[in-house]
Design a protein around this nucleic acid. Structure first.
Lengths: 223, 223
DNA sequence: ACTATTATTTATCAAATGATAAACAACTTG
DNA sequence: CAAGTTGTTTATCATTTGATAAATAATAGT
């Protein structure tokens, strides 16, 4: 049992004031990620400040405008969370292709299947700032195209350098990506709890994908 | 008998004023669908009015509040556009299963793969009003569950009445749904033009789906 | 301890925005 | 044509909201 003492609040639970600028800035940025993910970019700066237990004008000491803060949120989520190691996973031919794919998609899913990532990406898309197109272009170049190159190699097909990626091939990859992304949409946008383990879904999708893409690949090199 | 003898306005080039209430209301509703699909539900009533070439207070003559107008938009898009005939297509056993699936998904895709449907559905989800959950529940009951029942029947498996739908089965259907829906997301939210014919993608997905769901079905009836 | 610095708050502004009331004007009816 | 009905506009209100300037107070340097 505790003795309620309303005498003095023990311990310096006291609101700390005057933080170091860099620290304050990162605190604001972090909270902004969570805040805008929940309410969208029309969320009000006053409400964000309230959550941070600071006053609203203080935000403008660290970010010149609301848009600048939103820019920072993008950076935080869509740039910082990209892991260059993923590209290594995909292209590491000392590992079986299927294993690589599963590992990549599992790790990638772990990053994007979060409340913040999914919702912010969707908010950004609806608002349109070209952010999504830019991101997906990067995703295509850094991951999808490498991935198709690896699949071509695995099955003894011409390199994508010699024979450009076909519409059907990239469409297959989009399909796999859609399946994973949609899990996040269901969970974080539709508020529908997933009844299945994400990893096992990914494994199954990857295997179906590998089975399905074969007939879509260009013919074997028969020069 | 009331006779709406509308005195013919001569040469309707002139901005027509004083419309019939029911007509004005439907014009407003129609424009609101397009407007909110573009800007989201935070789109301003003044801007909507400007598009309609009417003044903003007139909106409030026909809809008591902005929320009521939004409610109407939901009705217009997510209720009115549902076609009961789809359920007949799915369950019409005089037609081969694959044909039914392809026909249903083609028709369904034609309705939901529109700028308005996709974006409004996403805006609604992000705002959360339970609308999406409600819609998807309906989709599951009226389409997906019937669809699984038909597949079970086709392959001589127990009825879903005797053996409830499994998580894996419904997951497969979600996967197919995701693939189609994501086409809309790419096009209308990410602004990425689709390079392929939607119908052929659907056909391919349906066939992959039918091949993939078989091992997931419950064992054959061995009473 | 004193002073300079600066993180933070208080006070406010101006524009935007949903909503209402009253004035206006187009159409109908007698 | 006069009068009444009602579709539409004008004028306006009360909040909300991004942003700024000045005042305040916590910390560092000497």
């Amino acid at each position: 049992m505790k003795k309620p003492s309303r005498a003095r609040p023990r311990a310096p639970i006291r609101e700390q004031q005057r933080l170091d600028p860099s620290e304050r800035e990162s605190i604001i940025a972090r909270e902004a990620v969570s805040f805008f993910a929940e309410f969208g970019f029309e969320g009000q700066t006053r409400e964000l400040a309230r959550r941070l237990r600071i006053t609203q004008p203080l935000l403008y000491r660290y970010f010149p405008s609301k848009d600048a803060l939103i820019e920072r949120v993008y950076q935080e989520v869509f740039v910082e969370r990209w892991k260059p190691s993923w590209e290594k996973i995909i292209t590491d031919r000392s590992v079986p292709l299927k294993t690589r794919l599963i590992q990549f998609y599992r790790e990638y899913a772990e990053v994007i299947l979060t409340y913040e990532w999914i919702r912010l990406f969707m908010f950004a898309g609806l608002k349109d700032l070209g952010l999504n197109a830019r991101y997906l272009k990067m995703l295509r170049e850094r991951a999808f195209e490498k991935l198709i190159e690896e699949i071509r190699f695995e099955y003894g097909r011409p390199s994508t350098r010699d024979l450009p990626i076909t519409v059907l091939e990239i469409e297959m990859v989009w399909g796999l990506h859609a399946a994973i992304f949609y899990l996040g949409v269901r969970k974080f946008i539709y508020s529908m709890p997933l009844e299945t383990d994400v990893n096992s879904i990914i494994d199954a999708k990857v295997m179906t994908f590998l089975g399905g893409i074969r007939p879509v690949l260009p013919a074997e090199t028969a020069t």
